[in-house]
């Protein structure tokens, strides 16, 4: 079995109102349960907005801190799921389910080395 990172990319800004977000989160919960039942689920988290991020670079042994996310842009990593799957087809199939629940957000599927 290989492991895959399913990254959820979402636009910066306020999250959708609760009446929109609620049903989505319920669907997401069901999908996570299904992944667990299938033995595919390894780990899943949602993240606080990119404005809460801090970037660290080492400069001659000193930690240099910068406020904000590493990558500029209008979309950032909003959360991720780690799954295990037999091959890319199986991983893409779970990824497609996740994309359907979170549409129109993009899901990046990447193998873990």
């Amino acid at each position: 079995m290989k492991q895959y990172l399913l990254s959820i990319y979402q636009p910066d800004g306020d999250p959708p109102p609760p009446e929109v977000l609620g049903p989505i989160m319920a669907e997401l919960g069901k999908l996570n349960d299904e992944m667990k039942a299938a033995g595919a689920w390894v780990f899943a988290v949602g993240l606080h907005p990119p404005s809460t991020a801090t970037v660290i670079r080492d400069r001659d042994g000193d930690a240099l801190l910068t406020d904000g996310p590493f990558a500029e842009g209008k979309e950032h990593l909003g959360g991720f799921t780690i799954i295990q799957a037999a091959d890319l087809d199986e991983a893409l199939s779970w990824g497609s389910r996740l994309a359907a629940v979170l549409a129109p957000l993009a899901i990046e599927v990447r193998p873990i080395a």
Binding site: A86, V109, P111
Partner: peptide
């Protein structure tokens, strides 16, 4: 190789 694209004839539904 690294992403694990399978050597397989797809299943009927795919």
């Amino acid at each position: 190789r690294d992403a694990g694209i399978p050597y397989r004839v797809p299943r009927d539904e795919e």
